[in-house]
Each structure stands twice: as C-alpha cells, then as structure tokens.
Simulated assay, not measured.
Amino acid sequence: MKKIKEPLLEPLLRWMRLRRVKPHIPQNYILLDVGCGVSATFLRSISSHIRYGVGVDFKVQVYQGGNITTKQLKLNNYLPFDNSSFDVITMLAVLEHIEYEKEILQEIYRILVPSGKLIITVPSIWSQPILEFLAYRLKIVSEAEIRDHKRYYTRQSLEKILIDEIGFQNFQHQYFQLGMNNFCTVTKKE
C-alpha cells in the first residue's frame, strides 16, 4: 500500500491510539476496522496478532494480501456483512465523522458475534478548541479531518448511545491523551 504524506502530528496521535487499543484485541480473532483510513495502518500493524482482518473506508486503497483485506465503502447506515461475522470491531477516531451514528452502531451490533467486542476512540468535548487550533492555526493536524467532526463525546454521551440506545453491555471507559480522547470498549450481549 502506498504511503500518504500527512500533517506533522498525525502519526504521533495515531501511534498513541494504537498503543492504547492493541492490548484489548485477543489473539487469533477475526477483526473489522471501520474507518481504517487510506493505508489501513492499524490492520497492517496487528496482522500477525489476528486470524483475519477487514478494513473498510471510503478512501482506503483496495487491498488483499496475507490475512488482510480492505474494501472501499461509504460509511452510512449499512455494513455489507452477515450477522455475527466479527469477533472484534474497531472504530478508531471514526465515530465522530459518521453522520448516521445510531444506524452504524446498530449495524456493528448486528455483525458482531455474541459477546463480541467493540473498541472505540473518539475525541472528548474538551479537545475541540485544541484540535481546531492545531489544525487551522498551526496546521499540524489535518484540517479536513477536524472540519468533518460532527460531534465530540463525554463518558456519559458514549454510555447513553452504546448502552441505553444500542444495547451493548460491559461499558469500560477511560480518558487518555490528557483527557482529549475517549477510549471505550463494550460487548454484544450473548
């Protein structure tokens, strides 16, 4: 896959997210990375750890090799996978960009196996002015990505959508990156 030139701070922020997420992915599982990005960096970094991985994004370069497949897909309100297809689904810095938040989360619930895990990172409400400053003034994070944010999250807003509205269970949450990001895991009911 071709490397894309990106703003200065993006690789560091991604590395920090990946470091937070990787320990929560059981070995030899089937994983879907929703919003995998242009190069499916996360999937490629954990390919030796998982049985099989699929990445979907509207801007990903289509790829199939080893145990990794990527597919171009606009993330609206439907995911073209069978019920109970994935052990783990990741959405790393993605949910804040999704217009149909509830619908995509319902789809994720549908395609997870019973007791399957969803792992999410999303920006906190406190990060908005900082991210806008870094993007619009300093130009060290992607301006296009920040402009595309549809919402920012608190622990409470994540718990409300994931548990109360969608029906996940086992809500685990931490703020990280000095409170600028949310890290959350939930599981599908058995």
Rank of each mutant, 00 (worst) to 15 (best):
S47I: 06
R44P: 07
K59H: 11
E143G: 02
Y63A: 01
S45V: 02
S48Y: 13
E99F: 12
P80D: 13
G116E: 04
N83F: 12
Q128G: 01
S124A: 10
M91S: 01
L131W: 09
L134M: 09
K71T: 07
K102F: 05
F42E: 12
I119R: 10
Y63L: 05
K139E: 03
I111S: 02
V113R: 14
Y52K: 14
F81T: 13
L131V: 00
K117M: 09
V88I: 11
E103D: 10
S47Y: 15
L112A: 03
V60R: 08
A135D: 05
S127G: 12
K102D: 06
P129L: 04
I50Y: 10
V62A: 08
N77P: 04
I108C: 10
L134T: 04
L134W: 11
P80I: 12
L43E: 14
P80R: 12
N83W: 05
A93Y: 00
E132F: 15
F58W: 10
I68C: 02
N76F: 07
Y109M: 04
H49Q: 14
L118S: 04
E107F: 13
L118K: 09
I125H: 14
T70Q: 09
N67W: 15
I98D: 05
L138K: 03
T90N: 10
L75C: 02
V56C: 08
L112W: 03
F81K: 09
R110H: 11
L95Y: 14
S115N: 08
I140E: 07
E99P: 04
I89M: 13
P80W: 07
V88Q: 05
T121A: 06
K59N: 15
Y78V: 08
D82Y: 10
W126N: 04
R137W: 15
K74W: 00
L75G: 06
Y136W: 09
H49I: 05
I130P: 10
I89Y: 11
K102L: 05
K139N: 05
L92C: 01
H97F: 13
G55E: 06
K71I: 13
E96N: 09
E132T: 12
K117R: 15
G55A: 06
I119D: 06
E101L: 09
E107R: 12
Q106Y: 07
P129R: 04
Y109V: 00
L138R: 08
Q106G: 09
V54Y: 06
L105N: 01
A144G: 12
Q64F: 10
T70P: 04
W126F: 14
L118E: 07
D82T: 12
Q64D: 06
L43T: 00
M91R: 07
G66F: 11
I68D: 03
S85W: 00
E103T: 12
K117E: 06
K117W: 02
G53H: 03
V113K: 14
S124V: 01
D87M: 02
I104M: 03
